[in-house]
Deep mutational scan, measured.
Amino acid sequence: MGKSNSKLKPEVVEELTRKTYFTEKEVQQWYKGFIKDCPSGQLDAAGFQKIYKQFFPFGDPTKFATFVFNVFDENKDGRIEFSEFIQALSVTSRGTLDEKLRWAFKLYDLDNDGYITRNEMLDIVDAIYQMVGNTVELPEEENTPEKRVDRIFAMMDKNADGKLTLQEFQEGSKADPSIVQALSLYDGLV
């Protein structure tokens, strides 16, 4: 993909415009910024974590950033290329609610087996709590990752089998306004 070129080839721009919710001009602008920050044309896990640390200076986002990195890194080569970056950004910032929920499901399904187990969710929720640090005051019933996961599973795990399917996750998330709101945070920002 033209590693350190400051412009993408027209056919690449066209393809990314088809695969995302961005215009050709927006794709070019994002590429310019991506190459400025990642001259090699790729972003590794350490660089990704560094970006998260800028956004969450009062907590430790390392663990959460690693989980997000793994979802962005579609081809699992340990690096995020621009096409992976822009497609994930498109879903998280401008995707439909169902697209965002499928993306979030992939984030929580750490072993990619098609289910979110209690332990997988606990890993992610714990990482989120570490990331936000003491900057967020949580209600008593959610002031630990374990309590939050218990509440989520009580609401979403309809067949009580200890794991969530994509359908259970989507339906449960849509029924909880706070989850829908959290997924909409990026709307309109890009």
Rank of each mutant, 00 (worst) to 15 (best):
V136A: 06
D161Y: 10
E24R: 06
Y21L: 04
T23H: 11
L185D: 07
K100T: 14
M131P: 03
L110F: 12
G33N: 13
D150V: 10
R118T: 05
L101T: 12
E84T: 07
V125N: 06
N5F: 14
S184F: 09
L185R: 05
G47D: 15
E84Q: 10
S173G: 03
E99C: 15
A104I: 03
E137D: 07
S6R: 06
E24V: 15
K50W: 15
T96V: 03
K163Q: 04
G59M: 01
K7L: 06
M155K: 03
F48R: 02
D123P: 13
M156P: 11
Q87N: 05
I80R: 13
P177G: 06
N5S: 15
T66L: 07
T62K: 14
F34D: 09
K174T: 13
F34H: 06
A65N: 02
E14C: 05
M121W: 07
Q54C: 04
R118V: 03
G162L: 06
D161S: 14
W30S: 00
A160R: 02
G33L: 04
K32W: 14
V180L: 10
D37I: 00
D60F: 06
D157P: 07
K7C: 06
E99I: 15
E171K: 05
M155I: 12
L97M: 08
I51K: 08
K100H: 03
L16R: 15
V27M: 13
E141F: 14
F82S: 14
S6H: 01
V91Y: 13
I179V: 11
V68D: 14
E81F: 02
K7N: 06
D187K: 10
I124R: 15
E81C: 01
T23A: 11
D187N: 04
K147P: 09
K9Q: 15
L138R: 06
F56N: 02
Q54K: 08
F48D: 12
V125G: 07
K25T: 11
F56Y: 06
A104D: 09
D109A: 05
S178L: 04
L43T: 11
D60L: 10
P57S: 03
N134L: 13
L138G: 07
L166Q: 06
S40V: 06
A182R: 11
D176Y: 11
I179F: 11
D150R: 09
K3H: 15
D113G: 07
A88G: 08
N5L: 07
V13Q: 14
N5C: 14
T20N: 13
Q181P: 07
M155L: 06
K7G: 00
N119Y: 09
P139I: 10
E140K: 15
C38G: 09
L138F: 08
P10S: 12
K53A: 06
F72I: 02
F55E: 01
A160F: 04
F105G: 02
S173F: 10
S173A: 06
S90A: 11
M155F: 11
Y129D: 13
